[in-house]
Design a protein around this nucleic acid. Structure first.
Length: 553
RNA sequence: GCCCCUGUAGCUCAGAGGAUAGAGCGUCGGCCUCCGAAGCCGGAAGCCCAGGUUCGAGUCCUGGCAGGGGCACCA
């Protein structure tokens, strides 16, 4: 049960019954919220509703709060209700209810904290969507971790989620890719060929050329660029999938841009826009009248050359999303797409769809620091650090954690030294260590020959230490955190929650011993049960972040 | 020039219109004879500026100032 939302319902009902009895005048009740007060002295939950009602009710907030409190029924999960100036209604959750969370966590397991926000709704999360022209970069990694984490939260919120990768396997970049590989291949054969400025400079191009040479020798000397383009994009795409899998990101759908050409959707979209009168010709190009949707200028859809710009298939792709009937679509874009995302939605509007089902989430760049110095990266020169290199150096868990450790609006400075540091400075280990410490308790317990199931008979009413109760209070907030993540499309909240949970755990571990000799037997069993639940909850939260829950480190 | 993002503690960042603005790092001072010190306990230290909306503004609006990114018939 969500105590926060349930209390909000109770408060609303109390207002209604106060109105019915004439204690409060009639007015439309706005949304009732409960929130966690900053100060523990102000209770576990609080509602500021009385302040909002003051004007409508033409009464002092404090008096309204008192009337609402008087109309609240006795609730088994609430220990105390206090009205406080200037008009807060503060609630303390009953200790007995906190204790029930132990079994709740163990029963629900990897579903603990789930909410019903998206029940029965179809959603899509699109992220990464890199061109298959090179390795996954850190910027794309960030979008990927954000998207995957949000998808996990949305699943926990009941959505049927499709995690999708839009794979730009058509257009000019692929042409350049093919040329680049062919030039490298010819070079390997000792032919005179030079890369131009627009070609891909990275070493991986040489590797692919080498692969081709190993397989075909010099037989492809006169082969068309297309062969090299197709070979390279398949190879690179496969590598990208493998890289992403290393950080626990696996897509449900790889949507190929090229398929929009194969099935004619790109041209169909263009024709539809033309029929609706949003396309005109100028300078031998086809222009989209995006100014009709608030854009600062019109945009080219089809170039003089007759080729579509990237915009055209992007619009067709989002048109397709609209037709697939998603209730919610979340697109993640890096800083290079901040300006273009709205134009695509304007195109979908022009095609006749309400685009409110699409949310675009933008994020800022990722930079690397090593030894206190910024690591210099350049995409053009191919001197950027790739996801694979980062996984090799720090492992998947720190990447998952740090990539969502900030709001998307903040730049991330990834500290390579900190990421691998096994100390209290590193939040990754701080959180995982909570799980490890729990596992350690049970390992010792069983090694000593005790019954591994002994805690199933525990008397949980013995869990009265303030640290234990604080941990259980924090545990109960998970649903609220998931709701916030999904409503705001902000995955970073889970890292803060995980850290806070660990911060509630470690002092408990220090003060509420289990195996020490002075602990009375019934309390020992209750605490075993408590740590069993704690371990389960850390496994749950780490899984929501796509991280491992180690038993030893 | 136009658009987007950001200015909160020495540093890096949370802050969902509510009460005395929270963390981590750093700093200063304590804590291991039994479950992992990869930990715990305590101290000092902060909302860029000016208006406005509101019962109430770090949060919303307007205008400054400062930093970052983007403004292609590339994607």
């Amino acid at each position: 049960m969500r105590v926060d939302t349930q209390l909000a319902v109770e408060v609303r009902t109390a207002i209604e019954s106060a109105q019915a009895s004439g204690a409060l005048p009639a007015f439309a009740i706005p949304e009732v919220l409960t929130e966690r007060p900053r100060e523990a002295a102000n209770g576990d939950l609080s509602s500021p509703i009385a302040m909002r009602l003051a004007k409508m009710a033409r009464m002092a907030p404090l008096k309204i709060a008192q009337i609402i409190a008087d109309h609240l029924p006795t609730l088994p999960y609430v220990r105390e209700v206090v009205v406080a100036p200037p008009g807060f209604i503060n609630f303390w959750v009953a200790t007995t209810f906190l204790q029930t969370q132990v079994e709740e966590i163990l029963t629900e397991g990897m579903d603990y904290g789930r909410i019903t926000l998206g029940t029965g709704q179809k959603a899509q999360v699109e992220c990464v969507s890199a061109n298959p022209t090179g390795p996954i970069t850190l910027g794309r990694t960030r979008g990927g971790v954000m998207g995957d984490t949000l998808a996990r939260a949305m699943r926990a919120a009941g959505y049927d989620v499709t995690l999708e990768y839009y794979y730009n396997d058509a257009g000019r970049q692929i042409t350049m890719l093919g040329e680049s590989v062919k030039i490298r291949y010819l070079q390997l054969l000792g032919e005179a060929a030079e890369l131009g400025d627009e070609h891909y400079q990275g070493e991986y191009i040489v590797d692919i050329a080498q692969e081709i040479q190993d397989a075909y020798g010099d037989a492809l000397k006169n082969e068309a660029d297309d062969f090299f383009a197709n070979y390279a994009k398949d190879r690179i795409s496969q590598k990208q999938k493998e890289s992403l899998k290393r950080i626990n990101i696996e897509f449900d759908v790889y949507f190929r841009e090229y398929s929009l050409y194969e099935n004619g959707r790109v041209w169909e979209a263009l024709e539809t826009l033309q029929q609706k009168g949003y396309v005109y010709e100028q300078d031998d190009a086809q222009w989209f009248r995006s100014t009709a949707f608030g854009d600062e200028k019109d945009r080219v859809l089809v170039k003089q050359s007759g080729e579509p710009t990237y915009r055209m298939p992007d619009i067709a792709y989002h048109w397709d999303k609209a037709q697939r009937g998603f209730d919610l679509v979340v697109d993640f874009f890096g800083p290079d797409h901040h300006a273009t995302a709205p134009q695509v939605l304007m195109g979908v509007q022009a095609l006749g769809y309400d685009t409110r089902f699409v949310r675009t989430v933008l994020h800022q760049i990722v930079s690397l620091v090593r030894g206190g110095e910024q690591v210099k990266m350049s995409t053009r020169r191919g001197t950027y650090v790739t996801l694979d290199e980062l996984v090799d150096e720090v492992g998947p868990d720190p990447i998952r954690y740090f990539m969502i450790s900030r709001s998307g609006n903040s730049e991330i400075i990834f500290d390579l030294d900190l990421a691998v540091e096994h100390s209290d400075k590193n939040p990754v280990y701080y959180i995982q260590n909570a799980h490890v410490r729990c596992a350690g308790i049970f390992r010792k317990w069983e090694e000593a020959g005790h019954d591994p199931h002994a805690d199933e008979q525990a008397d949980l009413s013995l869990l009265t230490h303030e640290n234990e109760l604080s941990f259980l209070r924090k545990a109960m907030e998970l649903g609220n955190v998931l709701e916030l993540m999904v409503n705001e499309s902000e995955p970073h909240h889970i890292t803060f929650y995980a850290y806070e949970l660990a911060s509630a755990f470690h002092p408990t571990y220090e003060t509420c011993r289990v195996l020490h000799s002075e602990v009375p037997e019934p309390l020992r069993l209750a605490r075993l049960r408590f740590y069993r639940a704690a371990q389960q909850l850390f496994a749950r939260v780490l899984d929501l972040m796509g991280m491992s829950a180690p038993e030893v480190m």
